[in-house]
Structures are given as structure tokens and as C-alpha cells.
């Protein structure tokens, strides 16, 4: 398995500077700096509880940082009013670790929901076409009338991704896309993330501690250690080190 190479663009779509975030006395982020370039898949690696998910929740405005700045598509997230934040969120897709499908709705209704809420001028035919297009993109057309409870974990993840794609976002945030899935389904999800990058021209941040996923989807890898990004670069650059905080990731993932 070859690691992906860096993209050539240097246009920044997300810029994170000196971000700090604490929960009570526990400081999770201690001055994190990170850039996401247009068109790339950036994988954020780190141990559980190091603030990876907190970081993407700050990017999407679900949480607010205690200090520092987070600029998304040229807009400082914490300075936006409610309306501006809603507008920005239309340009960001967020795939949750738990998939977060609305369990009282069918798959069709789950996919229609963001469209009906945000694109009020669309006809029923246009909505149906958009739903079928994203379902086709994730290869799950047959589930259209099923309930989320009838799907497997991998199918739920894909539908979760499809639901974010329906608004055609410029940025995708994946929170642990392969967590809890079998190895074959993990490979399918990795492939889907790459397909999304190519087909929808998205720039993505992928939060994971799965090195197979990191190697397969990441144009760049950034390691979050002790609340800061300590290492960033291609897969090989990041893991070409004797740093005892980094090498265990490599050893335990059996992909040498």
C-alpha cells in the first residue's frame, strides 16, 4: 500500500492558530496550529482524549475555543453571528463518529432533510434526483426506504457521509470514519473518502487513530501530541522518527 503524496496547492481553506481549549481543569488543546490546503485530505492522528474531535467541533462552530483563532474559508468562526454561522455550515460537511442518522426518519428522509431545510426553491423531482445521486455515490441505493436501525455500522457511516454530501460542501470533516468497523469495511470507507475528494473536489480533515486509514487517504498527516501539532507532513515524513510518543502508533498498527 503506497502512501498518498502531498497536493501541490497552498491555498488555505482552514487556518488554526494558537487554539486553546479546556474542560474544567483539563486543558485539551494547548496552542494548536494547523492549515488545511484546498483539495487535500489532511489526517489528524492522536491518542484518544487528545482533543482531535474537539478541534473539528471548534472548526464547525459546535464548540468555541478559549483562545486563538480558527478561520474557515476566510471567516473567523467565533466572530460570526448565528445567520453567518448557518451560511458557513452549508459549506462544511461533518461526518460523525456515531453517524448520527435521524433514527425516526427513513434513509430518504435523512438525506432530504438538509435539502428541504436549506434549499427551499427545489422541486420534489430535484430533491429526489439529489438523493439518488448521493446514494449512488456511496453505493447504497437499495437502502433508500429503510430505517437507520436496519443498517450495519458501515452502511450507517456511508449514509452519514451521503447526508453531508447532499449539500455539496467544500470542506469535509470526518470524525473517526473507520472506528468500530471490520477491516474490509474500513477499506471501503477509505476508498469512499478518496472518491469524495476526487468527485466533489473537497478539502477534508480526517480524524482517526487508524494508520491504515491515515496512509490510504491522507495527503498529509498531522500528529496531535500534548495538545499541540508536533509533527506534520506526508505519512513517511511523520513516522520517520524515534520520538517515543509517535513510534507506538506505527508499531501497534502492524503496517510496516
Amino acid at each position: 500500500m503506497e502512501a498518498k503524496s502531498k497536493t501541490t496547492t497552498t491555498e488555505t481553506v482552514i487556518s488554526i492558530r494558537n487554539v486553546e481549549k479546556s474542560f474544567g481543569d483539563y486543558q485539551v488543546l494547548k496552542g494548536a496550529d494547523l492549515d488545511l490546503y484546498k483539495g487535500e485530505n489532511l489526517v489528524v492522528l492522536g491518542r484518544s482524549g487528545t482533543g482531535k474531535s474537539v478541534l473539528i467541533k471548534i472548526i464547525s462552530g459546535l464548540l468555541t475555543q478559549d483562545a486563538g483563532t480558527v478561520s474557515v474559508l476566510g471567516k473567523e468562526v467565533s466572530q460570526l453571528n448565528a445567520k453567518e454561522l448557518l451560511e458557513l455550515r452549508l459549506r462544511i460537511g461533518f461526518s460523525f463518529q456515531s453517524s448520527a442518522l435521524y433514527d425516526s426518519m427513513t434513509i430518504r428522509q435523512n438525506l432530504e432533510f438538509p435539502l428541504i431545510r436549506n434549499k427551499k426553491n427545489l422541486t420534489k423531482g430535484e430533491i429526489n434526483k439529489a438523493v439518488e445521486t448521493v446514494l449512488d455515490a456511496v453505493g447504497l441505493m437499495q437502502t433508500i426506504n429503510q430505517m437507520p436501525s436496519e443498517l450495519s455500522g458501515g452502511q450507517k457511516k456511508r449514509i452519514g457521509i451521503a447526508r453531508t454530501l447532499i449539500l455539496q460542501p467544500e470542506i469535509m470533516l470526518y470524525d473517526e470514519p473507520t472506528a468500530g468497523l471490520d477491516p474490509i469495511t474500513c477499506l471501503e470507507i477509505n476508498r469512499l473518502i478518496n472518491e469524495v475528494q476526487e468527485r466533489y473536489k473537497t478539502s477534508s480533515i480526517v480524524i482517526t487513530h487508524d494508520l491504515t486509514c491515515a496512509k490510504e487517504v491522507g495527503n498529509r498527516i498531522a500528529m496531535l501530541l500534548d495538545g499541540q501539532f508536533q509533527r506534520a507532513g506526508t505519512f513517511d515524513e511523520v513516522f520517520d522518527t524515534d520520538d517515543q510518543r509517535v513510534t507506538p502508533f506505527f508499531e501497534y498498527n502492524f503496517i510496516q
Binding site: 448520527a100 435521524y102 447526508r163
Partner: peptide
């Protein structure tokens, strides 16, 4: 129960990030 379940399964946050209040 319904809203509680939606909260703990991140459905409320999912609604928020898909630009719905």
C-alpha cells in the same frame, strides 16, 4: 426520551452542522 436520545447519539449536533437550528 426522544430529545435525550437525539442528544446522546449526536443527532442534535448533526442537525446543527447541517445548518438547521
Amino acid at each position: 426520551a426522544e430529545l435525550g436520545s437525539m442528544k446522546v447519539t449526536e443527532q442534535i449536533e448533526a442537525m446543527e452542522v447541517s445548518a438547521t437550528n
